[in-house]
Amino acid sequence: MTGLGDRGRGWTGALKRHAAGWGVAGWPLLVGALITGSWYGGIVAFGIPEYQLPPPHRIVEAGLEEREVLLTGAMQTAQASLIGFLISVAGGLVLSILLASSRWAYQGIYPYVLLLKMTPIIVVAPIVILWAGQGLASITVITFLVCFFPIVANTTMGLRSADANLLDLFSVYKAKGWQQLLWLRAPGALPYLMTGLRVAAALTPIGALYGDTVAGMGSGADAGLGFVVLIFSAQFKVPALFAAAFAACVIGFLFVGFVNVFAWWVLHKWHDAYVAVD
């Protein structure tokens, strides 16, 4: 990140602000242009056919051509992502508090949380479908399974890492368990929670897209993005496949971006990482 915090005066300040603006927009644009250039260059130089690597303008064309299918697909996937994400957050928080509340709960339950995490989703998915049936319910459960662990792991870690001196202080003042949790452990765990949320947010669309490809349902035009990918793939629509990949990217960026804004809103008033920047 460039030094946004350095607000100098006069012409040096103006220059620095200018440079900062360039850092935010200029560099990505320049690299984007380089990538696009070598993309076209590679296609021409190596004679790469469209079914292997379509040129960018064909991807844009295909994206426009299939915009309805892509848009409904993206909306469906975003919906499944959102539900799965929110359930993971809620479930993750409850479980983390339980895990942090007592030593036996942590030692007894955490290995099974790990077990759930270690079982690959590809193995679990067919079982989920058997139980929850085809459709949104299963996709949500799959999304939940993919993104709930980072939240639990990080939040539990946060709740358990309160400063020992402060814990002593709380017990000296005879604070009750819930008071200790609410006023000491929870605030201290917030940055950890935010890290968990960020990781989970990036994983969420992956879970939802994978859920689509195994538990999705539709008649073609009303299915999630993962299902749409299956259709494009079966029909050898390679430029449309790339367009679908970008649509999935957009969902991921929206999720991560939203979580970042949320994290800033929660933490910027007091947390060092944010306070220092301003």
């Binding site: 085809q134 490809t213 195994v214 349902m217 539709g218 008649s219 073609g220």
Partner: peptide, 9 residues
């Protein structure tokens, strides 16, 4: 006709 499709597993 209209089919509700489920991906082949």
């Amino acid at each position: 006709i209209r089919l509700q499709l489920v991906p082949m597993d």
